[in-house]
């Protein structure tokens, strides 16, 4: 018997005759009166921030808030502030100098400040992590209450990669002291447009 057969046979032998049924997973859960407010608070609690763009363009916002960013890349069409094509090469290492990555998020999750990012237009998933700073553009009003609603919208019928991003990269591995910016972006702003 190979390993697979051995493992499966052993499991079959050992599982009980009377088996636990699959429970209902759509349990009653919290809904927020003001999802925007909750999202902002949750994101702030994990070191991130959320801003709603009113009149100005994304380009103007970037110019104002990221004056020091030299290398800017984006998967969003039509931005004038970007000066590097994130999809240019097949090997992602050339992204190591990216100061700011402007990426698309599908929706935010109010309970925990996470944004679902699964962008088929983006060739290199590492972009979300290798950039020094991250700006996630989310359609205004695209917010769900909890992960229950979030996973109703998440699909993987085909292959791909997607991630919930909740604030910047962080660690508390040294004496429990929270340090923002471990390996990934040192800041992660969510911009509702």
């Amino acid at each position: 018997m190979n390993a697979k057969e051995k493992i499966l046979a052993n499991i079959k032998n050992n599982v009980p005759a009377i088996k636990e049924p699959m429970p209902q997973t759509n349990i009653a859960h919290v809904h927020f009166e003001n999802k925007e407010e909750k999202f902002e608070a949750a994101l702030a609690s994990v070191g991130g921030n959320a801003i709603t763009l009113s009149h100005e363009s994304i380009d103007a916002f970037v110019a104002k808030h990221y004056p020091d960013a030299k290398v800017i890349t984006s998967t969003i069409d039509g931005l004038t502030c970007k000066n590097k094509d994130a999809n240019e090469q097949d090997t992602p290492h050339f992204l190591e100098d990216v100061d700011l990555a402007i990426v698309e998020g599908e929706f935010g999750v109010a309970e925990n400040g996470a944004v679902w990012v699964k962008n088929p237009k983006n060739k290199h998933r590492v972009l979300y992590f290798i950039a020094q700073r991250l700006l996630i553009i989310v359609p205004k009003g695209a917010l769900v209450d909890t992960m229950h609603e979030a996973y109703e919208r998440v699909k993987f019928n085909t292959s791909g990669y997607g991630t919930f991003i909740s604030g910047p990269s962080k660690t508390a591995d040294i004496e429990q002291a929270l340090v923002i910016g471990a390996h990934g972006p040192t800041d992660a702003c969510v911009l509702f447009v």
Partner: peptide
Amino acid sequence: QPVTSYTSHYH
């Protein structure tokens, strides 16, 4: 924390 910073789905 309400969720980890990254919850990544590899497919």
